[in-house]
Write a protein that binds this DNA or RNA. Structure first.
Length: 276
DNA sequence: CAGATCACCTGCTTGC
DNA sequence: TGCAAGCAGGTGATCT
């Protein structure tokens, strides 16, 4: 699902519909999305005013006049300001005086891998995240390659998927970034972090930023059913060079794009352009 | 500690 | 046609 660009798009599209509004009703129906006492959560939220909405990694942060509502969209989550409630709608928020729209916010998530949590202050899941890829310098990026016991030996694909390394990259943008930087997904982090690979590390840093920025510009990637809060699709999938393109010719060398399993995830790359 | 494996849930596609 | 297996944008618990 939704990775950093999709979550950013959702946040931007929902912002004008919920900012400065009061939560007048709330209902939850999934023990996976909202573990624990769902009625207590609803009671906690009703009467709260929404001060602002933001994003950290793949998390949506809704600042309230008391505490913060932290949401994750998992693999199939959507946050919608229009549409109807169905069996996959696991969160319904009724909002005060509709300045725009209809005054309802719907959390929709068929697989229920997402989450909705209230906490008095920053959610610990958010605290554990690494830095925002669009905010850090190259030196800070390079410094992340070191773990507590020296330079990390993990493969680059697994490292990019680790949210404690950088927040926000998922399967699509990890594959696209590694292709753009000419790095094989199984290349060890130690190799990229070595001084001799400085150019490649810098290419990766720039690739991640350019790809995420461009994806945000065009509203994210709509692979199957991703849409923003107003139901609009994103268009970055058109610009994917490797993700979902197994067997197609590489944009760079013309050889076939391959798909293998890395870190339990389908991983797309060009064997000719991305050497270990 | 770092890394690998598995599990969570639903729906769609693939292959026999 | 029908059905089982496999796979999907993610994360976190549990092992080695």
């Amino acid at each position: 699902m939704p990775e950093l660009p999709e979550v950013e798009t959702v946040v931007r599209s929902v912002r004008p519909f919920i900012t400065d509004r009061k939560i007048e009703a709330a209902q939850f129906t999934s023990k996976w999305v909202t573990p624990g006492d769902m009625k207590a959560l609803a009671r906690k939220l009703i009467g709260r005013k929404i001060l602002s909405i933001g994003r950290r990694g793949k998390y949506i942060l809704i600042q309230l006049d008391e505490g913060v509502l932290t949401m994750h969209l998992g693999m199939t989550g959507k946050l919608l300001v229009q549409g109807s409630v169905d069996e996959h709608t696991h969160g319904v928020f009724g909002l005060s005086h509709a300045k725009h729209g209809e005054g309802v916010l719907l959390y929709h998530d068929p697989r229920q891998f997402g989450s909705i949590e209230w906490s008095p202050a920053e959610n610990p899941r958010v605290t554990r995240l690494g830095p925002e890829p669009l905010d850090i310098s190259f030196d800070e990026f390079l410094a992340r390659f070191k773990g507590k016991s020296g330079v990390r030996k993990v493969g680059m694909k697994a490292l990019l998927l680790n949210q404690a390394f950088l927040a926000g990259l998922g399967n699509i943008y990890a594959d696209e970034s590694l292709f753009a930087a000419g790095i094989h997904p199984l290349t060890s982090a130690a190799k990229i972090a070595s001084p001799r690979s400085r150019a490649r590390a810098e290419r990766l840093y720039q690739a991640i930023r350019a790809i995420l920025s461009r994806a945000i510009e065009v509203g994210g990637s709509s692979i199957s059913d991703y849409v923003n809060a107003e139901g609009e699709r994103g268009w970055f999938q058109i610009e994917h060079k490797v993700y979902g393109r197994e067997g197609e010719p590489c944009a760079n060398c013309g050889g076939p794009i391959r798909k293998v399993l890395v870190a339990q995830r389908g991983t797309h790359f060009c064997p000719r352009c991305q050497k270990k």
